[in-house]
Design a protein around this nucleic acid. Structure first.
Lengths: 204, 204, 204, 204
DNA sequence: CATGAATGAGAGTTCATTCAT
DNA sequence: TATGAATGAACTCTCATTCAT
């Protein structure tokens, strides 16, 4: 960001620009996200964009940073609730939440997820991983499972990538011959039982 | 395609161009794949490119079409062998094969997989699905399992997308703190047990 | 200049801006001298810049005007001393003074000299010419030379341009294979003897 | 240069572009020399410019390179003639030649000389220096002067910079109160006698 | 058929200047 | 009067595509 927003309308402009970037990405795709398009969507001149951001990439990075914040807040709430439920319910609700999330904002997050390899997603990935680790920890505390899950990092890596991309593909399906609910249930089943198998048997 | 390659020379040209496209995508990424770059890699003029293809998209479509063919041949062989093995072995070998495949051709297929949403991948997805369905059918025949698996399409959709994208993410990891073998084993475990649970109990 | 600085505050602002312009030119070169850069260097908003100056060019013109003043004062002192010395010493000291001058202020004057053709330098040139004419006049008075030098304007034009640009080139040399002292001595020699040859022989 | 000109019209294009650059620099100054202006002057699209040159700088570099060639040819001829004349005549003719040169091509070379510090002029400077050294060598051979001039590099540096910039300033003078001929004669006088003083007295 | 020169729309970016606050 | 947000013309450069040779 080039300028520290010192006036009230500056902060508004920053938000407007990030918001415009969201809309453009959602509506025109990442490839159609050009500086003119963003400026137009924000109802602002190109110059203004460069007053506040070093360029297109910086703008997208800021959007992702904002996403990190939003996600953190969302997941923090979620993690609390998750701990009180069964593993299966926790998993299912997480999957449904992800699906809802990806549908929100005109599919913005879907488009971002699709293009993960072209974006600075490390921070986002960290937040997600953190969420899963924390959720797991709380879950085990709650359920009095003494030993932590075996190979937790690997299991998390596999499960959240499987979830994310399977849902992504599901949403992209044109001739949706697959019912959304079935896929969610299938994923829930697959992941729950996989995670359960990682739970160490307690000593007797 | 503008002209049917009726002469040997023409077919050679078409192949050369597709092959050049592969190399450029592998080496410079999909975004770096420009028509001049392809023409140069093919040792041919841009004009010739347009003699045989309607443009860049048509060329990439042709490359994917060729990939469909290659994949079909590869998987046909694979399907035969798979039928004789246990489900777990079948799954594991499929995953390993996928990994090898993605590493081959200088990472061409990895780059294609990453950019699936920008490419006409429907035909490729169909072939993969077909393979899994066929493999499943043969497997059940071989193992005398009377009833087909429950919700087979859903299970296949979930498993191959999970596999594909988890491996894709694994290969893209820079600070690879995850051991490849562990992830393959984890995926194998998750998928095998998920599929097994879809097998209908036989009437007694 | 838009407003006559009638208040002390205003005059201070004008000076601050001109001083900031100096620094920016010296540090970033004339091409890198932008209005935002000047405003920032002055610790002032761009708006204020335009309160006191019609624009960038006006600011630079004001800087040159200030330079005219500084130069006048500097040279006035110099002219006094010069009159008491031999022609050779006068010339040498002038050259050395020019060199020192160009090195001062982080090379500001060197950068201005390099870009003379893009700047309103007429006034500066006039002052320099005036100095040389006055110095000459005093010199001849002092040394009881009845007749003025022949073609004085031409000789001055040639000598001060030769000095200025030769020194400028000397300072810009990267692989300085020429010793500064040698060049100063060479110039001194060339100019002194050229000027001497302009001195009219006195009637006897 | 991006492309080796393989077709005849390619070479023509390269020449056209360099020639257009010349005209634009001469007519609009170096600051007004933009890629659109060059393309327009060449009657060509911007794209073509980038087919043959890496950008504006490369184009200007090519122009200077051409200048090096032209200059070399011009000076080679000159050097031959110079050797047969007196030192004074040689100097005078060189100065007049420089003046003519700077006036030619609508003042192109004047504008280039003015902006020497922003251009890659090393090659040009080398050629000039080479010319002076060679001319000197031939001159001394011709006139049977046994010993070479003292401090030749310094004297050349001083004389050609003095000449170049004094003439440059002369040409830029608006209210030309100085007669061109006078300045040329003055320079000739100054330089000739300066060089002569560098000639070593022969042993007797 | 093959060539590669030529095109030009459009992208990213900068900065002198204006003007509402 | 001071501010700095906003502007937009202009610039450099890219690349898919066309078409004369």
């Amino acid at each position: 960001m080039r300028k520290k927003p010192q006036q009230a309308r500056s902060r508004a402009m920053v938000d407007t620009l990030i918001e415009a970037t969201s809309r453009v990405i959602a509506q025109r795709g990442l490839d159609g996200t050009t500086t003119p398009a963003i400026a137009e969507a924000a109802g602002v001149s190109v110059g203004s964009l460069y007053q506040y951001f070093d360029g297109k990439d910086a703008l997208i990075a800021a959007l992702l940073e904002k996403l990190v914040g939003d996600l953190t807040r969302l997941l923090d709430t979620q993690a609390q609730q998750a701990a009180t439920m069964s593993l299966r319910d926790t998993v299912k609700i997480s999957i449904q939440l992800t699906l809802t999330f990806m549908h929100s904002n005109e599919g913005l997050y879907l488009e971002l997820a699709r293009n993960w390899h072209r974006l600075p997603v490390d921070r986002v990935a960290d937040v997600l991983e953190q969420y899963f680790l924390e959720t797991g920890r709380l879950y085990f505390l709650q359920h009095q499972l003494e030993y932590p899950i075996r190979d937790l990092p690997v299991r998390l890596f596999i499960t959240y990538n499987s979830t994310l991309f399977t849902l992504m593909r599901l949403m992209s399906h044109k001739g949706a011959h697959l019912r959304q609910e079935e896929v969610v249930d299938g994923l829930t089943d697959m992941i729950t039982s996989y995670l359960e198998r990682g739970v160490q048997p307690q000593d007797t």
